[in-house]
Each structure stands twice: as structure tokens, then as C-alpha cells.
């Protein structure tokens, strides 16, 4: 393995890891506000990618412009989903039933995409799709960099919202201790809905980033949900920094393992890491108290 190939792998891994980190942050948010594992997250990711593709092919818009539509509408969908569906489940069986409910939503989205757009593989044709530049002998495609930039901007924005605004403070209070937050006068139900919307908005951004340089098809979301789930379990359910670190590490390892093993076997790194984590530290590496019982 030559040095430039190695560097290429590391760069690709970091670019991929950025997207993983953004999506895993969304999953972590859902888990934080409701102890819900949202299987449909990656289905919404693919849905956003399809919207970007559709706007590009039928309206001729740049996929990045689709964000104007998808981000607010996904936020609303997330809010409605939390208030209208998930909060109706019985608290005693919430964890299990929410998994099944979001799984049902994922199936519905996949089926609807297949129904309207058929199972054909789609790809956005961009004028700058093949453009790339060289860093120390490694080729970096512009689209991948744009996707990474989008993910980083979204993550920073998410961080800023959580840390700097009063809404973020209320959301973090709701995650940490809902009863106490309610005592302080926070409308935790509404805040939880907004948290869900925020999580789904990350799927909208991730979907646009994904559509820039990948071929998409309705059942693609299964290839995303597995690695994303592995990332949040390894990072420790409920911990955004943990998820981001795990995403970066696993993204880089996947990209590096692709060189000797090929793409298919390299994907197993997520699952191998998942099982190793369960054996060594079932609560994940950063989650602590929250994750233990889930």
C-alpha cells in the first residue's frame, strides 16, 4: 500500500465520516429526546436525495437548492411525527414499539419511492461532477468536498443551536431530565417535537449531500441504517460527540479497508466493531448512564 493510496484512503474516510457524523447526530437527537431508535432516519435520507434528484432532472435546479424545500419541510414532518405518532405509544413498551413504528415508516417510504420512481438507479448529472484536485498526490473530488462541507456546516449549526440558543438549552434540559425541565416551565412535549424535527432536518441535509455523488435507489437506506446504528451504539446511545468520533473513526477505517478488501467486505467493519463493543462495553464508549439500559 503506497503512501499516496493511504492518504487517499484517509481523506476519503474523513469526507465520508463527516456525513456519517451528521446523520448519527440526528439519530442521537431522537434518542435523546424520546429514547427512540429511529429506523426511518435513513429512509428519509434517501427521500431527501430523491427530492434533490427530482428537482434537478425535472426543474433543472442545482441539488443544493433543494435544501430550501427539504430542510423546513422535514423539520415539520419530524415535529408532526413525534407529536402525532410516537408520543401516542404506551410508555411501557415505547422503546420496542417505536422501533417497529419507525420501521413501518421506513418501509412505507421505500415502497412509495419504488412505486413513483421505480427501482431504477438514479444519479444526478452535474457539470462539476468529475472535477477534482490534488492534495499531496491524492485525488479529491469536488462533489465529495462539497458534501463534506455541507455536513460540517450543518453539524456546526446544530452545535450552535444546541449550545448558544435558549431553545437549545431547553432541548438539552429536556434530554437530560424531562421532569426537572418541566418543573422549570419548559414545555417538554413541544421541545421534544422540535428536537425530532431538528433530527429529521439533518436527514434532509445529508440526503442532498448524498445525492451529489452517489447513485440512489429506493432500498439504499438499508445500507445506511446498519452502519449508522452501529455508530450510535459504539459511540454510546445519546452522546453526540461519541457518535461523531465513532463516525469519523469508522469512516476512515472503512475507507482504508476498502483498499485491500473491496467495498463489500469493508462494510463489515461497522458490524465487527459493533460486536466488539457489545462484548467489551455494551453501553458504548461515550454514552455513560443514559445508554446502559437501552
Amino acid at each position: 500500500m503506497s503512501a499516496s493510496l493511504l492518504l487517499q484512503g484517509v481523506i476519503l474516510g474523513i469526507l465520508l465520516g463527516g456525513l456519517y457524523a451528521l446523520l448519527a447526530a440526528g439519530l442521537t437527537l431522537y434518542f435523546g429526546v424520546m429514547r427512540v431508535v429511529m429506523i426511518a432516519h435513513s429512509a428519509f435520507l434517501i427521500l431527501a436525495a430523491y427530492i434533490a434528484w427530482w428537482m434537478n432532472t425535472s426543474l433543472g435546479l442545482d441539488p443544493l437548492l433543494s435544501l430550501v424545500v427539504t430542510v423546513p419541510s422535514f423539520f415539520v414532518v419530524g415535529y408532526v411525527m413525534q407529536r402525532g405518532l410516537l408520543s401516542r405509544l404506551r410508555p411501557a413498551t415505547l422503546t420496542m414499539m417505536s422501533v417497529l413504528l419507525t420501521f413501518a415508516i421506513a418501509l412505507t417510504i421505500e415502497g412509495a419511492l419504488g412505486y413513483f420512481f421505480t427501482g431504477t438507479q438514479r444519479r444526478i448529472q452535474l457539470s462539476y461532477a468529475s472535477a477534482s484536485f490534488e492534495v499531496l498526490g491524492a485525488q479529491v473530488a469536488v462533489v465529495k468536498l462539497v458534501a463534506f462541507g455541507l455536513a460540517v456546516v450543518a453539524l456546526v449549526a446544530l452545535w450552535a443551536v444546541l449550545k448558544l440558543t435558549s431553545f437549545g438549552q431547553a432541548l438539552r434540559a429536556t434530554i437530560q431530565h424531562p421532569e426537572a425541565a418541566r418543573l422549570l416551565g419548559i414545555d417538554t412535549d413541544r421541545i421534544a417535537g422540535f428536537g425530532f424535527g431538528l433530527g429529521l432536518a439533518t436527514a434532509a441535509i445529508g440526503g442532498t449531500a448524498l445525492s451529489l455523488d452517489s447513485t440512489i435507489y429506493p432500498s439504499l437506506h438499508w445500507h445506511w441504517i446498519g452502519p449508522l446504528m452501529a455508530i450510535i451504539v459504539i459511540g454510546g446511545l445519546g452522546s453526540i460527540p461519541g457518535a461523531a468520533i465513532a463516525a469519523m473513526l469508522l469512516g476512515v477505517s472503512q475507507a482504508l479497508l476498502q483498499i485491500p478488501l473491496g467495498t463489500t467486505w469493508a462494510q463489515t467493519v461497522f458490524y465487527v466493531a459493533l460486536f466488539a463493543t457489545l462484548m467489551v462495553r455494551p453501553q458504548g464508549f461515550f454514552g455513560g448512564r443514559l445508554a446502559q439500559r437501552f
Binding site: 434518542f31 429514547r35 427512540v36 431508535v37 429506523i39 422503546t95 420496542m96 422501533v99 441504517i225 446498519g226 446504528m229 452501529a230 451504539v233 446511545l237 461497522f270 458490524y271 459493533l274 460486536f275 457489545l278 455494551p282 445508554a291 439500559r293 437501552f294
Partner: peptide, 11 residues
């Protein structure tokens, strides 16, 4: 338990 178990079963 719970959600993590479901994730592992899918994995």
C-alpha cells in the same frame, strides 16, 4: 436490551 437489541438483530 430494548433498542440496542433490535439494532444488533438487524446488524
Amino acid at each position: 436490551r430494548g433498542a440496542s437489541f433490535v439494532i444488533v438483530s438487524i446488524a
